[in-house]
């Protein structure tokens, strides 16, 4: 079987398209590259969506944590503490165990005007359940980063905004928020990288694979299990993740340039990637 044929059969296997049966014997390097690459689609799916949704919650959490009102600040602090203080591995496991306990037929929400049945079955599937966990997790980590940046927004900026008569939402959206993002961006880039790394845990703890549709590490594990040789599939995963990391650094670097475009060039912080957050 040629490599092109293998690619056609397995390139979208992780999504359920193409050949149904995974290779069982005579494994070629091409099959390993194709299938593991096909699984990478899920890593990117989890990483990108969790990051996108998490970004908004993180902003809210950071603002709440900075709030003067006790009732707003405390929940934000606890949210950050619980998700940053415990291993993601345990969070996945607990989430899965909790999701399967939800009633199968959905929850009857008895509102005053109407009945709503909330479907819960999909939460036990990795595509939704793991995404929820990753979303909350990254929101907590980024929330902490944004909070730190929020505290370092220069006082002069805010005074200037006040002088222009800006207040409330306008001041936040046009002055505070862009500055906060600019300050937080290097740390947030790290968070993005490690979030993508963390997606490999999805099928490793808690969430089971359906119809052998899994992420890159799931297929690598499959090959290591069948060939009894860990020295080929895992380095392939490593190779793919280096590519993903480089892509993130490139993309976030572009955004960083845009966020800093108004700064005098010698003051522009270069994007220094330092590991500050992983789980």
């Amino acid at each position: 079987m040629s490599c092109v044929q293998t690619f056609q059969d397995y390139a979208f296997r992780s999504l359920g398209y193409g050949e149904r049966l995974l290779p069982r014997s005579d494994f070629t390097l091409c099959e390993q590259f194709t299938l593991i690459g096909s699984g990478l689609v899920w890593n990117i799916y989890f990483g990108a969506l969790a990051l996108f949704f998490g970004f908004f919650l993180a902003t809210a959490v950071a603002v709440a944590r900075n709030s003067g009102a006790w009732v707003v600040r405390k929940p934000a602090e606890w949210f950050i503490f619980v998700f940053r203080g415990s291993p993601l591995f345990i969070q996945f496991f607990l989430a899965y165990q909790a999701f399967v306990l939800l009633p199968r037929n959905g929850i009857e929400l008895n509102l005053i005007f109407t009945h709503i049945t909330a479907e819960t079955g999909w939460l036990t599937r990795a595509w939704a359940g793991a995404l929820v966990v990753l979303f909350l997790n990254t929101a907590a980590y980024s929330g902490e980063i944004f909070y730190g940046a929020l505290r370092s927004v220069p006082k002069g900026d805010i005074e200037a905004a006040d002088a222009y008569g800006m207040a409330g939402w306008t001041r936040f959206r046009r002055i505070v928020w862009p500055t906060m993002l600019r300050l937080a961006w290097p740390a947030y880039t790290n968070e993005a990288i490690f979030l993508f790394h963390a997606t490999t845990l999805v099928y490793f703890s808690g969430f089971p694979a359906w119809q052998q549709k899994g992420d890159a590490l799931y297929y690598a594990n499959y090959f290591a299990d069948k060939t009894f040789n860990p020295f080929i599939p895992y380095p392939i995963v490593a190779f793919y993740f280096i590519l993903v990391t480089l892509a993130i650094i490139g993309l976030f670097g572009l955004i960083n340039r845009r966020l800093n475009r108004h700064m005098p060039s010698e003051n522009r912080p270069r994007l220094r990637i330092r590991p500050q957050v992983i789980r």
Partner: peptide
Amino acid sequence: ATLLEYPTSDECIAAVRNGE
């Protein structure tokens, strides 16, 4: 059939009990 995989036999049995 649709295969649902778990690392131990105990989890496979638990999956039937909880309806997975």
